[in-house]
Design a protein around this nucleic acid. Sequence first.
DNA 1: GTCCTTTCCG
Length: 757
Amino acid sequence: MHKLKPNIRFHPLKHPPLRHSSAAAAATTATTKSFNATLHLLSSEGSHHHVLLAYNSMLKSSIPPDPFTFPSLLKACISLNLLPHGLLLHQHIVVNGFSSDPYIGSSLISFYSSCGLTEHARKVFDTMPERNIVPWTTVIGCYARTGDFVHAFYLYNSMLHEGIKPTSVTLLPLLSGVSESIHIECLHACIVKYGFLGHIALMNSMLNVYGKCGRIEYAWKLFERMDEKDIVSWNSLVSGYSLVGDTEELLRLMYRMRSENTWPDHQTYGALVSAIAKEGSAEFGKVVHGQIVVAGFELDVHLETSLIFMYLKCSNMHYTFKLFERAKDKDVVLWTTIISGLVQNERADRALEVFQSMLCSRTEPSTTTIASALAACAQLGSLKVGTSIHGYTLRQRMAINTPAQNSLISMYSKCGYLKQALIVFRMIKDRDVVSWNAIVAGNAQNGHLSMAMHLFNEMRIAHQRPDSVTVVCLLQICASIGSYQQGKWIHNLVLRSYLEPCVKIGTALVDMYCKCGDLDSARKCFDRVIECDLILWSTIISGYGSHGEGESALALYTELVQSGLTPNSVIFLSVLYACSHNGLVDQGLNLFDSMARDFKIEPELEHCACIVDLLCRAGRVKDAYNFYKMKFPEPMANALGIVLDACKTKALVELRDAVAKEISELDNEDAGKYVQLAHSYASMAQWEGVGKTWVQMKELGLKKLPGWSFIDLHGVITTFFMGQTSHPQQEDIMLVLKNLNDEISERVIMSNVDNIS
DNA sequence: GTCCTTTCCG
């Protein structure tokens, strides 16, 4: 910022000056007076560096300072951000005996306040013998600017108690940071009481505050009653509407603005562009962009950033980079905008490239930049880059904020380093709900489900209220382990905790109930969601499909189309799955044809594999194989495996051999392929082939993860592995399985008998 | 000679 690197050394006081009596202070030498005048002049010109140099030469020539000397010096330290020099000046003030001067006191409070040393500021204030409105204003402003409104208002009340009336300067800093209704109303009342209704900066601040807290109708009322309005008044109103993303109202406002002869400036357009970004309407955005160019505001850095952010939100990468590459003065916010925008567009690779060029351009990253770059690493699962960024912050002794620390947790979790994630989590001072969600989700996604639940309990003990992300994550855990009781408990938690009902929670509930086999509850949750999206529809369709309710799944698909939504490829996957698992062959084939014909969706390999499965399950194995040959240009192990299995059950020896040959010729080294082959040889009783396949697999060092499952019974999770014999109730289990198998065989025989007769 | 001017970007 300041190109002039100040190298100012205040000479140590060799001879501590005599304590000035008031008489001595009055008898200041003529030279001191003229120096003071110079200091004051330089200060008012903004030449703060020279102010300090002048003080230096003053000391050098042994000219004694007086109380008038210090305010401009302290101001210089504030504007040049020189903490050590300010501290030295305070020392000089004390040694010279000027500590109780009311003017110097205010300057000192202001200095400490600007350095963020609130405690020091307060100490100076507390030890002042006489305090008029100025030091009160300064110390109140000091607390207000750090967001400590409890202290700020406490002091404000004490001031009123001492019979001192506020000025507009006192109220302004209080007003610009306040957010609680009761504080806003109190300040509004003060403005009326002390007669500041005509003070335009205060009124504009008031407009802003009402807009920021969403009480835009109050802002309007105030606005209409203002005698004098300037561009800031208009912009304050505009930013209120921008916050809620009401572009329609914004355009109306800007129209009225022009009709009252006020022209929108770069800030007006900035607010408009932000609102458009929220809506994500690229076409409208382009029109406004055009207007901005015509109005000549295009090169404003803030506006450039807003425009880029808007194009990112609309996923228009072409315009994003066009603007970004053209931007001349890229500041840290601009760089950060593009990095975080790329992450949100799932282009983490690009985001890290941009981060790299940012460092090369010698722009210092902020803590928000770090948060975004780490999010990119999390997305890529890139531990190496993630750790090096973590290292960078440690080397730079950067005080990274909670969002950046949350990104660290996600990054380590995504890379499977849960221990590191937990260490970071434990070190966070001000944990927010995102921190908790990150560590809970991290454990859940890595399969540490009991740890996730344990952390969630800890979260409740810490009185951290869960949000929609928390409950969605917990419901996913319950769904994945089929934990019905816990799932219902969390459903109850959702109802009790006044969480805003939303489609994401609705979908998680539907999924959880489906996975736990309670389709009735799933349907009830589904019906309660107000704005259904395609993800919700596909969740419930798959749910019905996998629980033998194919007809219901199809009925829901029809309902979906009738609701006016256009199905996507995922919906087709769910509904085809429902058909294949419920013997709805014709319906499935019809739907498959309908994809391209009615909805212009080209079937992907997954859809084709679904049809292969559908035909196989229906016993039309040859049709399935022909379909496979037609649709799969490259061989696909999964689809072939389905056909191979079907051949076994249908005893199609020739086709089986042909498919087995095809699988063995696949050049992938997937363990599943060998297992499949071994099974097919076994079913043909070709034991030599079985042995050979296992040997091959062993030679290649391939291992197939044994199949496993688990069940949650009254909160106790029991795990089963393939070939496991160690379960305490092993014999009972085997007996039940045998009975089930017998029953199935019996029913198959009966149905064959039915078919024959 | 003390406090300090409101609106837009991640």
